[in-house]
Design a protein around this nucleic acid. Structure first.
Lengths: 102, 102
DNA sequence: CCGCAACATTCCCGATTGGTTATATTACCG
DNA sequence: CGGTAATATAACCAATCGGGAATGTTGCGG
């Protein structure tokens, strides 16, 4: 069972999420927008589903996929201590620049 | 050339970064802390180096690695629009709960 | 300048991954 | 109920990846 990080490693999966972020889509819609075959799209969507990053809703013959962003919180939280590090670095840089006469 | 996302997909590489976040380390230090052989560690460090996530400094025979968090900003920025989505969802949930009589 | 200690590289392996083609499956519509 | 549109699954392939053993490389210390 791949982690959210591994699921996001695939550029096309991120691209799929970028589309679903703005609107619900059928599989065919996504195939038209992302350069991948239909079976390939179904595979990616399965990975995204199992990671909890998308949800499906049936509409006649179509399946409408929509974003389910909760698992992204894990990534956000992993990143948090690093944000502190780079904020500290920016502070130090600013103080250093303030000390420069020119 | 792998993206930051792909580099972070590896659990052990995240583990390495977690260590380097708090202190500068030699390769041997890291081998003692992360379950991987020394050649394996050198490989991971190479990937991290080429991604700009760590920097090296030579100290006698040792090489001291330290975190270089800047590339993580890319991940942070990709995540940003999604934070808005899940913030909206939490707001909606709260409003909904406030509307419930019980 | 020799020998060791610390790392990096090479080589090889099994496993996984992403992709496509071909083939189910499913649900509507006439 | 038969056909078709939409999607999923199966089967297969090439490429990549992570891992370890063996082997280079480099820089110090005596």
């Amino acid at each position: 069972m791949p982690s959210t990080f591994e699921v996001l490693a695939e550029p096309r999966r991120r691209q799929i999420l970028d589309v679903l972020r703005t609107r619900e889509c059928s599989v065919n819609d996504l195939v038209a927008l992302v350069p991948v075959s239909q079976p390939g799209m179904s595979k990616h969507l399965k990975v995204l589903r199992e990671a909890g990053l998308v949800q499906v809703r049936q509409d006649a013959q179509r399946r409408l996929y929509r974003l389910s962003p909760e698992p992204l919180a894990e990534v956000h939280e992993w990143l948090e201590p690093y944000r502190e590090v780079w904020a500290r670095r920016l502070d130090a840089l600013e103080r250093h620049l303030d000390d420069m006469p020119d």
